[in-house]
Design a protein around this nucleic acid. Structure first.
Lengths: 143, 143
DNA sequence: CAATTTTATACCTTTTTGGTATATTTATAT
DNA sequence: ATATAAATATACCAAAAAGGTATAAAATTG
């Protein structure tokens, strides 16, 4: 049970943009170099973030990407959902018909897993990129 | 971010065994039929559960599987860890060297994700198979 | 010893993942 | 206008993981 590489890159991309001046446009190349992300893959992934309204994109010379929102209004959950879609920790939680026993409607395992999923979503929704900057300042930067 | 099919089958296998008389031996064929699980795949998966000490296996005529513990002492987390290994929601949480930026030691994204992972584990550890039987009795059976 | 059950190992096919390539569109600066 | 530089759209590809199957061996019972 793991987030995929694209999501990891997206986290770092948004964290990088969060540390720039508000509305500062940064080109993909710069993000890719600073964050050590394959540029082609980054370009593809960032498109999901623009489609989700998390970043704005600008084409042409002097183009690039900038956050579409304040970092305090972007959570880890937003990124996950933009890149991978909603967290569904078991097949049957996406589509009840996926249960090979066709028991989703009354299955207690499913009910418990649903609560685990809710807890995970809640926790993912807790952390904004503003929080991450604060964590960085207080726990990381001094080292 | 999803548990795999083997884990799902394992949840249902343990739930099935939890509803038998204590120490009752049930053969794989019966579990597979009742739970609609491909038998070969089930046999392979259950081996992980025996290796983890969650079920006992008995070979030969009248052989099969029985729980090695009381259902009140088996949690969803135990099953997940037996089948998939520990929950690691991002690569870098397993091995810090997996970070393509080699930034794991100070990365605030990683720190936040670690907390999310802890929350997920905590919640998974909350539900025992005794709880699931109770959920079944109170929320499901009457329907 | 024969029948039945799990175990061990290996294999196979399909899907997902991670990444790349090419051509196109948009915007800027000269 | 035109050359340049950026994102976009589409398609493609290889490697890994997922999901499942097959066969032979080992253990247990009657």
């Amino acid at each position: 049970m793991r987030f995929n590489q694209a999501t990891d890159y997206a986290f770092r991309t948004i964290f990088y943009l969060s540390r720039q001046e508000p509305n500062e446009i940064v080109e993909a190349k710069q993000i890719a170099e600073k964050e050590n992300i394959p540029i082609r893959f980054l370009l593809k992934t960032v498109r999901l973030l623009t489609q989700a309204g998390i970043v704005n994109s600008y084409r042409g010379l002097k183009g690039g990407y900038a956050l579409a929102k304040d970092p305090k209004d972007i959570t880890l959950r937003d990124i996950v959902e933009a890149v991978e879609g909603p967290v569904l920790i078991n097949k049957c939680l996406g589509d009840p018909k996926e249960c090979s026993k066709d028991a989703a409607s009354w299955c207690p395992v499913r009910r418990a897993l649903y609560r685990v999923q809710q807890a995970a979503n809640k926790e993912l929704g807790k952390y904004t990129f503003n929080d991450l900057i604060k964590i960085y300042e207080t726990e990381c930067k001094k080292q």
